[in-house]
Simulated scan of single mutants.
Amino acid sequence: MDARFLRAVGAATAVYGLAVAARPEYLARPSGLTDGFGEVAKETATSLRPIGLRDAAIGTAMVLAPSGPALATATAARIASDFGDALLLGATLPPWRRAPAVAVSVGWGALSVIGLLRTPGGTGSRCSRRRHRGGH
């Protein structure tokens, strides 16, 4: 697990989540959840704010959790949220908005998966790095 990378992903999602909670149009407009004038209905804004707060909470947990099981658990919640968003948005958004919204959700989830699988400071296994440095 690359804790530094996961904390960066967590920080980015926390900031974005707070932005969406404050200004739901940041999520509504790219998702096509606006009216014919590009405005966000009050009901839509009310529905999107909790998503922003969820992202802020999980992102903050990723930043603050100790490395190890706590960080892995916070990251698993991030992955589940992103892939869940992809499923729901893919099933419900208008066809012309579906692919970009799903791609963004899957992309953020994939970043978290990469952070869980990645070794700190680079690529490759610990064994191959030891060999590269001359020992085993």
Rank of each mutant, 00 (worst) to 15 (best):
D2I: 08
A3D: 07
R4P: 00
F5L: 11
F5W: 12
L6P: 02
R7Y: 05
R7F: 08
A8K: 09
A8I: 07
V9F: 03
T13Q: 11
T13L: 10
A14L: 04
A14W: 01
V15I: 09
Y16E: 15
L18C: 13
A19V: 10
A19P: 01
V20L: 05
V20Y: 00
A22M: 10
R23G: 02
P24K: 01
P24R: 02
P24G: 03
E25R: 12
L27R: 03
A28N: 02
A28M: 05
S31I: 04
S31F: 06
G32D: 11
T34A: 12
D35M: 02
G36Y: 07
G36R: 08
F37A: 15
G38C: 06
E39M: 13
V40T: 14
A41Q: 13
K42Q: 15
T46H: 12
S47W: 13
R49G: 04
R49P: 04
R49H: 05
P50R: 12
I51A: 14
I51G: 12
G52D: 07
L53T: 12
L53E: 11
D55K: 10
D55T: 10
D55E: 15
D55H: 12
A56I: 08
A56Q: 04
A57C: 13
A57W: 11
I58A: 13
A61N: 09
V63L: 14
L64G: 10
L64T: 12
A65T: 11
P66L: 10
G68L: 07
A74K: 09
A74P: 09
T75V: 03
T75P: 05
A76I: 04
A76N: 03
A77I: 02
A77H: 09
I79N: 08
I79L: 09
A80R: 13
A80F: 12
S81N: 14
G84C: 08
L89C: 01
L89V: 00
G90F: 08
A91Y: 07
P95I: 01
P95G: 07
P95D: 10
P95C: 06
W96H: 15
R97W: 11
A99W: 12
A101H: 03
A101P: 00
V102E: 00
W108L: 09
G109F: 00
G109V: 01
A110D: 03
V113F: 02
V113M: 07
G115E: 03
L116I: 08
L116E: 06
R118N: 10
R118Y: 04
T119F: 01
C127A: 15
S128Y: 00
R131D: 02
G134A: 08
G135K: 04
H136R: 11
